[in-house]
Amino acid sequence: MPEIVLDRVSLDYPLLGAGDKSLRALMANALRAAGQPTRTRRGGVVRALRNITLTAGPGDRIALIGPNGAGKSSLLRLLAGIFRPSAGAARLTGQIGTLFDIGYGMEGDLSGYDFALDRGLFKGMDRATLLQALPEIRRFSGLGGFFEQPLRTYSDGMRVRLAFAVSTVITPDILLIDEIFGAGDQHFFEPACDRILDKIGRSGITVFSTHWLELADRFCNRAIWLEAGQLRYDGPVAEVFSAYRDQCPHA
């Protein structure tokens, strides 16, 4: 049974400026400490998430909304285990899958086939399963003969379809998606959502950050509104969205 439990979770990023990055600055401070008051810039942090408590269980398809810089990506990366909470506790049960960055690892000289291997193995699949899934990846991405061609011949849309097809071959219990659908990919959104529903079924958890409320409306059954790193509203999609639209009429 997949489950997400966040208990008063906060996340800080250290602010490392050019000065802080250097060893010289640290040593200079250490030397200075002997005689004079230090000038450390420690404690320079950005608090990306504050005191977030939430739980999610099987069947939850959560839309994560909020203005830019609200902490949506930070929350997703924390859920994925990339960042650890600076305070509080996060407990996730079940296998986690992510769809964050679509384009990385797409060296122009790799073929679609090579890329599928690269991404699939990185996502944690074993080679045999992946090789078996390749025809299905080829079919879903709709690349046809391009699948064997170098990626530099691909359009942006083809890249997204390929990366999506590979990344969704695994069937995680918890799927985390960070705004991978640009406005240009409307045609792809529908089959993509079907595929996510198909993969995760009704028993998994999907968390999905987006600015695109109409589509989130159709896909999700719960919404979380983040603002300045805090949880502003957590409830059924319609409720949260209408509150959000009242607050930010442009959305």
Partner: peptide
Amino acid sequence: SPYFFDRET
């Protein structure tokens, strides 16, 4: 780094 930001690795 893109790999490190995509999943726990």
